[in-house]
Nucleic acid binder design. Sequence first.
DNA 1: TATTGTTATACTCTATAACTATA
DNA 2: TATAGTTATAGAGTATAACAATA
Lengths: 162, 162
Amino acid sequence: MAKPAPKNKLQAGVPQVSDATLRRFLGYHMKRAFNVVQADLAQTLKPFDLRMLTYTALVLIVDNPGLRQSQLADAMDIERPNLVVIIDELERRELITRDRVPTDRRAYALNPTLAGRRLCDKAVAAVTTHESLLLVGLEEETRAKVIATMEQIEKRHGRDRT
Amino acid sequence: MAKPAPKNKLQAGVPQVSDATLRRFLGYHMKRAFNVVQADLAQTLKPFDLRMLTYTALVLIVDNPGLRQSQLADAMDIERPNLVVIIDELERRELITRDRVPTDRRAYALNPTLAGRRLCDKAVAAVTTHESLLLVGLEEETRAKVIATMEQIEKRHGRDRT
DNA sequence: TATTGTTATACTCTATAACTATA
DNA sequence: TATAGTTATAGAGTATAACAATA
């Protein structure tokens, strides 16, 4: 990470590509920055054999033991069918269990195993460390402001989940 | 857009899902906010039959007529093979042309057609309008700070393209 | 009739290896 | 030998329709 900018050896005299129009848009910068953050996170989670989605699901199950798949899909902002394979994987690796709910036999209560909680703790610690490295030099106030702005966008324009 | 929050009718008494651990991470909020921005952008571009990638490519070609595919792939932070279908589509729709470079017969110079420039102008205007709507209420200073932060993350940690 | 979880499916975006034609 | 563009392919992430079991 943070190599000394090897950059492309464009043939001499060829001007840099201008993104003057695009750079005015927040969406453009969010995509590019998110790609970086996403790639860094993927690297960080690789030793734990987790991806962003399996990591997110595991953390939410640890923090909310007993929750149902539909609630989790809602919290993760993904469709229920897409959650199935994620839960399958976490269950296969014995990080969580799918327990039948006695009061509603259609639903599953998702619970972390001891191994799941331990892996979760380690992964969260690693992600915390990596994110501070990624954001080193960024003032805490700026970071808070950026997060607040992101939340504002999420909250006000998040799609309905009827 | 901006419906009156129909929200999920969770069965009475079920507590909301807590994302207390995840919400501390910038990456978590960036993913969620980016999903919103991305969905909004896709809606905005639909009338022009453009996606985020074809839109980005078209704008860059209009702003940098004559650039080559490898330069464009570099600017867009995507791999060259993935750019081919994008350029194919823009060429098929006669929004751009692939012109052979006399001095290097391996390369193509990408140039916008008149129709391409016109569609580009209209699309950029629409995206500008929609982004202001999406960010209404956000102070200009905050917006600038967020963009600066995103650029900082891009610049310092962007992957090498050797 | 509605909901939970599931299957099947499809589309987009991304990534790599290997090819061709040029340099 | 190296580069520009291409092909083929595979893996993720995301979205919808339709089904079985249950409410």
